[in-house]
């Protein structure tokens, strides 16, 4: 293929197992399940050659890891929700695209590697999202990790590696972030019908993010990431990174048509299914005040 590859749109997808394993137990979970089906049937009418998933459920320490095993196959069980059942999976990975992302990441100064091992534990978030969106392996996928120590510059550069790989592939590839919005789970067992967003504060922050994204303001959400991390995320990693990566792949601006397919609580966290499609008109022409690095120049040891 000689033409330049591109991302026709990007997606935000949740990854908790309730949506896949027991959607019938809660009307909100069922709505998410149905929204996945609707999204999938819409995508099947479009020209899409593959998916790249950035998973907040796959932490890495040694730089960035890129799944390249051609056909990962396993029976997955979630660490927390093991009683909901097992999830057998068999995925199709675009190993060539994984290699290209890796080469592009290295050329940009990142420490990165492909991982290609039988039995590698693909995370719950990716397993759930792929089983729902891509159950027949219609589209080959690549999964990339989320480095626990990485901050904005490193994540933006890692996104550019994916963007460069997409362009050089000549294909139409959909970048996807697997993430909840607010991520605070209930810390006691609830009955499914009792599910709700953990706190009003989380709910309000989620709604603010949804308001921005429905207006196509991806870059504004990207730049709110640090504050969102402080306000509505349990701080398990250095920062809330998925929107940095997505904006970097799709383009760091507010020129999008945003569509909220669904937003519901799943075990206390905010689960949203959202598409962002590049459009001609900026939602709002704000000043983008953070810099736009091309190369990663090394860790600056700001975190002890």
């Amino acid at each position: 293929m000689s033409s330049t590859g591109k991302s026709p749109f990007g997606l935000v997808l949740p990854g908790l197992p309730q949506i896949l394993l027991c959607p019938e137990k809660n009307p909100g979970w069922e709505k998410l399940f149905l929204a996945f089906q609707q999204l999938r049937s819409e995508m099947e009418t479009q020209s899409i050659d593959g998916l790249i998933l950035y998973s907040t459920y796959w932490p890495s320490v040694i730089g960035h890891q890129i799944q390249s095993y051609p056909e990962p196959q396993w029976t997955h069980v979630d660490d927390e929700f093991h009683d909901l059942g097992s999830i057998p999976y068999h995925f199709r990975v675009d190993s060539d695209l994984a290699q290209t992302i890796n080469e592009q990441a290295k050329a940009r100064g990142l420490h990165s590697r492909t991982v290609s091992y039988k039995g590698f534990p693909i995370d719950t978030g990716c397993v759930v999202a792929l089983k729902l969106l891509n159950p027949d392996n219609r589209w080959p996928v690549v999964i990339v990790s989320s480095n626990v120590y990485a901050d904005r510059a490193e994540t933006i550069v890692f996104g550019k590696a994916a963007k460069g790989a997409i362009e050089s592939s000549g294909k139409n590839i959909v970048p996807i972030i697997i993430t909840s919005l607010s991520n605070r789970l209930h810390t006691h067992w609830i009955r499914p019908e009792e599910d709700h967003i953990h706190s009003l504060k989380d709910q309000e922050w989620n709604q603010k993010i949804l308001e921005f994204l429905s207006a196509g303001r991806l870059e504004d959400v990207s730049q709110l990431s640090r504050q969102f991390h402080r306000e509505a995320r349990v701080p398990k990693v250095a920062n809330f990174k998925p929107f940095w990566w997505l904006a970097s792949v799709l383009g760091q601006n507010n020129f999008y048509t945003g569509r909220i397919y669904e937003y519901q609580p799943v075990f206390g966290s905010g689960a949203a299914i959202i598409s962002l499609t590049p459009s001609d008109r900026a939602a709002r022409d704000l000043e983008f005040d953070e810099n736009d690095p091309e190369k990663f120049l090394g860790e600056r040891q700001v975190i002890s």
Binding site: S60, I62, V115, K118, G119, D123
Partner: peptide, 12 residues
């Protein structure tokens, strides 16, 4: 089989 998600090169 346990494969370390962080150090899969070292632990399978």
């Amino acid at each position: 089989l346990s494969v370390d998600p962080v150090f899969p090169n070292l632990f399978r």
